[in-house]
Design a protein around this nucleic acid. Structure first.
Lengths: 388, 388
DNA sequence: CTGAAAGCGCTTACAG
DNA sequence: CTGAAAGCGCTTACAG
């Protein structure tokens, strides 16, 4: 079967194919009447004007034949010979998290333009899985790695760096390792300034996992901006959480259990915000009227929710693309610098209709009304606008 | 650097490492004082009781040393020699669709138990990308493929099958190619029976892409159950759509534009349902009170929405796992059969509070109340319960 | 029970 | 401009 199914586009059985019937370099060379080394040189030639690895006619013949038989080099042979695989390993907490999936799409897209393929693995933010999956990926002889699941302390990453594996981080930073992140401190500030501007003073934070720089920095930025405005966010109203809806639910329950209902909540992740909204609904609080909620990332769904979610948009796809480019530069041996991309606030109904010291913030910032197709129309004007 | 960073766990530089300083089979053999062929035989030996490829003491010594130096076989060398890569290629429409991401997690998890790694690629359901990504994956010499983006006509897949590439389908079926799907016809029926049982008669369907068996079968099952109950679903109220929130929005707008407001809508995908809910909200219709909405898949978010979404749960993760097992069996040369997994209805607030001929459906089916942590509490009893 | 050889499909100095 | 050789790290009959 193998010998009969894989044929060149030219039809007919080919000489010197591999066991699966695919054409090899030898197939091309033989058909062109040249030595395989000549075929190799021609096919790998950087198409510069000055350099030539064979006469024009020979080169053209080889290329034509390669094309006709559908030659594609065996990556195992190439990899064995060159000890380069054109493979990168990507570790993420979970691909079902749309934030990471979007980042990964950017990585995949950008690495493909360099002729690289990617292995992705989920680690669930579990240190044991991180080690195990990293070893598995390394055993595949990837040329480099991108970690989307860094712990802020970075002990494991130091170790990997010590073994000489080139890598970059994405989404989360750790130590001095090169990373591409959102400016999370700024993002937290944007959320705080928005809520403060609307007159909120009793604020709570659903802060994410304590080991992730995203949650840490967003929370820090939020609290810093509050402090500058003379507003304190007490420890009891800053609770850690998973980044998913369930995490948001649990955190919101804990905050409400404090007995002390905030007038607005900042969740460092949209899905956590959705979970929080569910709890608030069950508690009889109308989000966007009785209480404000701000999320982070601006996932596509945020604007389509029954109550549109005000959120801080982070350039997820772009982060993935940039991380891929950064890794490619590292693989070329260049010295690289970390990059921090700028977030922006997207105001929607979950904060714009709340009846606390409203200050005309409506329409402020990008995306407020004319935003994405999924954006939420503004609510009717709140009843008691009280300009600052 | 290379020579100094990669060392065995035993410390010290190793002899006969690869260019990156990793131990090779030769490293192990040399250290054990045997020929590399002996080391290879021992390390690859299926640990059966009868068969031995070396004396006990020799075997143990080789294994101990391999372990100590952290030997892992070079997959390029193994692949070149055996023409097997232990790699599978996975094509999906989009990994940012949590449905596909969940399926992929199942695939990845299950293939890993066989020592396989996976390449995933997004095709965006674009036929050109499908071809291009398939060729790219095949050029990596995968042993088999899993397609999550099959078109119902399956022309492209027939071609791939004709080239002798072993593959299975997941999520969507096509032609006679082996597939693991949800019983989508049954799922559509469950949705219809639920709505009919609640007294709904003016039904609409957001049917998904016309080339995807998921949407086709769910719609067919829905309409068949309606027909059997003597309820007609006119063509004008069955509209195709993308599977995302934006697709659901567009479809709902189109349905409403018909001038003829349904009393319930079945969307073949939860995210499309969320998009539809957004449009209904904007149109001043209260979902779960003025109009019923049913989705499909039961993504984690469904139960956390401000109005909990009634939906048909499909075993997404399980589908991925089964598809992986099915492919592995194909790779062993076994004859395989398609599998169809059973869906179940999860009633929530988006249908349980609607004021049309209510029939005591509350509490029917699994997951109605005691469901996931994210499930939505039932609404207060509707005002005019009218048993069938 | 173990070794020696051949060869998988490439690339890369090195000759000529 | 082109060929010939060596070798990447394995596995697998084949001897002995």
């Amino acid at each position: 079967m193998a010998g009969s199914v894989h044929r060149g586009a030219g039809g007919g059985d080919l000489p010197f194919t591999d066991p699966a019937g695919r054409p090899t370099l030898r197939t091309v060379a033989e058909l062109a009447g040249v030595h395989v080394s000549t075929a190799s040189r021609v096919l790998n030639q950087v198409s510069g004007p000055g350099v030539r690895s064979a006469s024009r006619t020979t080169s053209e013949r080889i290329r034509r034949i390669a094309q006709r038989v559908g030659y594609s080099p065996n990556p195992h042979a190439t990899g064995l010979r060159t000890s380069r695989s054109n493979l990168v390993g990507v570790l993420v907490p979970r691909l079902v998290d749309i934030v990471l999936a979007t980042i990964y799409e950017g990585i995949e897209e950008a690495t493909a333009t360099y002729g690289f393929s990617t292995f992705v693995a989920n680690t669930g933010d579990d240190p044991v899985a991180q080690r195990q999956r990293t070893e598995m990926v390394l055993a595949r002889r990837v040329d480099g790695m991108i970690f989307g699941d860094a712990y802020i302390d970075g002990g494991f990453l130091d170790e990997i760096a010590g073994r000489g594996v080139p890598f970059v981080l994405v989404s989360r930073r750790a130590g001095a390792h090169p990373s591409v992140t959102c400016d999370d401190v700024l993002g937290g500030r944007l959320a705080a300034e928005h809520l403060l501007g609307l007159g909120h003073r009793r604020l709570a934070v659903i802060a994410g996992e304590p080991y992730a720089s995203t949650g840490i920095d967003r929370t820090a930025g939020f609290r810093a901006a509050c402090a500058e405005a003379g507003v304190e966010v007490p420890e009891a109203r800053v609770v850690h959480s998973g980044f998913d809806t369930e995490g948001g639910r649990a955190a919101m329950v804990e905050i409400l259990a404090g007995g002390d209902v905030p007038d607005a909540v900042f969740a460092v992740n949209d899905f956590a915000a959705v979970g929080a909204m569910g709890v608030l609904r069950d508690a009889g609080l109308a989000v966007g009227r009785d209480i404000g909620v701000v999320g982070f990332n601006d996932v596509p769904l945020a604007g389509s929710l029954p109550v549109g979610l005000t959120t801080v948009r982070s350039p997820m796809h772009e982060m993935g693309v940039r991380a891929a480019h950064l890794l490619m530069r590292r693989l070329r041996g260049e010295q690289v610098e970390s990059e921090r991309l700028v977030p922006s606030l997207v105001p929607r109904a979950s904060t714009l209709g709340v009846e606390v010291g409203w200050s005309g913030a409506r329409g402020v910032g990008p995306g407020s009304g004319a935003g994405a197709p999924g954006s939420t129309p503004d609510r009717p004007a709140p009843r008691t606008p009280t300009p600052r």
